[in-house]
Write a protein that binds this DNA or RNA. Sequence first.
DNA 1: CCCCGTCGACCGATCGTTCGGTCGGAGAGC
DNA 2: GCTCTCCGACCGAACGATCGGTCGACGGGG
Lengths: 214, 214
Amino acid sequence: MSGLRARDPAPAKPAATEPARRPRRPSGGPGSLLEVAVAEFNTRGYDATSMEDLSRAAGITKSSFYHHFAGKEALLRAALERALDGLFGVLAEPGAQTGTPSERLRHIVRGQVRVLMADLPYVTLLLRVRGNTETERWALERRRAFDAEITALVRAAVDAGEVRAGVEPALAAKLLSGLVNSIVEWYRPGRPGTATLPDDVARAAFAGILPAAA
Amino acid sequence: MSGLRARDPAPAKPAATEPARRPRRPSGGPGSLLEVAVAEFNTRGYDATSMEDLSRAAGITKSSFYHHFAGKEALLRAALERALDGLFGVLAEPGAQTGTPSERLRHIVRGQVRVLMADLPYVTLLLRVRGNTETERWALERRRAFDAEITALVRAAVDAGEVRAGVEPALAAKLLSGLVNSIVEWYRPGRPGTATLPDDVARAAFAGILPAAA
DNA sequence: CCCCGTCGACCGATCGTTCGGTCGGAGAGC
DNA sequence: GCTCTCCGACCGAACGATCGGTCGACGGGG
C-alpha cells in the first residue's frame, strides 16, 4: 500500500548542513540502538518505556526496530548481559584472586566502582531490575551469585582477623554492596573527582564515610 | 502471561472464627487498600502493576477500588506522603536539632534507619520513584530537599573539624544516603539483628563498614 | 427508604508485535 | 559501462491484548 514517500519528518536527527548522508548505525558503539534504548529505560524505567519511545529516540520507526532486535525483552537481556559481564570480569582479575581477603576486597570494590562508571547505563539498568520477566529473574540470580562471593570474602577477612571483631559478615557485605551500588544514583561522567572515585569509595568502606578527626 | 487463575476471591484474609461477616476494611491500618497496593507496587514495580492486579490482591473488583481512591496516581501520592512525612519527622526531632553537627548526623542516620524499618514498604516505593508523573516529580523534589539538609550538616561537621580533613562533604553525604537507603533492598521485618540495626549502620557510617582490626 | 459499598460491562487509548511492501546500494553477468 | 537481481534497512498500517478509568444497577444494613 502507500508508496507515498514524503521523506518522513526526521525528528531533529539529520543535521541540515549535511546532505543525505548515510548515518550507518553502529552495532555496539556510541549511538547504537542498544545504547539509545538503555538510556531511555533508565530515564523512564523499563516498564514505562514503550517501543515507540525507543523508536523516536533512535530516529527510526517501531517496525524498523524489530528488524534489529527480537523484541523489548531481547533489548533488556543484551543490556543486562553487558553489565553482568563487566561485574564478573572484576572478580576474575588477578588482583581479586591473590592476596589477603582484605586486599582482594579492596581491589574488588575499586574495580566495581570502575565498571560502574564505565558502563554506567547498563549497570544502572541491572540494579533496577525487579524480576517481572524470565530475563529479569535470570539477571537477579546472577546478581545474587555475585553478592554471595562478596559475602564469602568478607567472612574470610573477618575470620582472618583483618577486620575488627564483631563485624557481622552478612550485614557488612550488604552495606558494602549498597554503598557501591548507590553510586549509579548520582554519578555522571565528565564531572570533577571522577579519577579518584574508586579510591575514595574504597576508603569510605574501610575507614568510614565520616571518620572522626585524627 | 499466566492469565489462568483459579477463583481466588479472598487471599487468606477472613478469620475462620468469624462467619460470613463484613470484613470492614480499615482505612490506614494493616490490611488497608493502601497497604495492599503498596505491597504490589513494590513487588512488580509501580508501572508494571495494573489496577486489576491491585483489585485482585485486595479481594475486590477494580470498580470498587475506584470508590475508595481517585486513581492509581492518588494511591501513589498517599504512599509517598507517608514515607516523606516519616523521613522529615526525623529532621524535626530534638536530637536532630541540638548538639554538634556530628552528633546530629548520628541521630539522623539512626532515625532514618528506624523510619525505614517501620515504614519499609512506603520508603521502598519512595526510593524507586523515577519522575514520570507530576506526583513522582514532587516526591523527587522533596527527597532532594531532604538530601540537601544532610549535605549541609556534613559540611558543618567537616568545617567544625569533627570529621577527618579531606572528606568531601558532597561525596560523603551521597555515600551516606546510599548506605542507609540501600537497606530497603534486603531488610525484612521479624529477622534477628533488627533491634541493633540503626546503631550498626551508624557505626558503619562513622567507623567504616570493614574497619581494620585494632 | 436511602445510601454506601460492590459489581459486571464497557470505553478509548496505548501496549508490544506482525506483516506486506518500498527503497537504494552492492555485486554478477555480459 | 550497463543492466538485472538480490538483500538489508526501513516504513505505514494494523493486529489482539491490556491499560487506567467510567457507568448504571443492585442489594442489604441503618
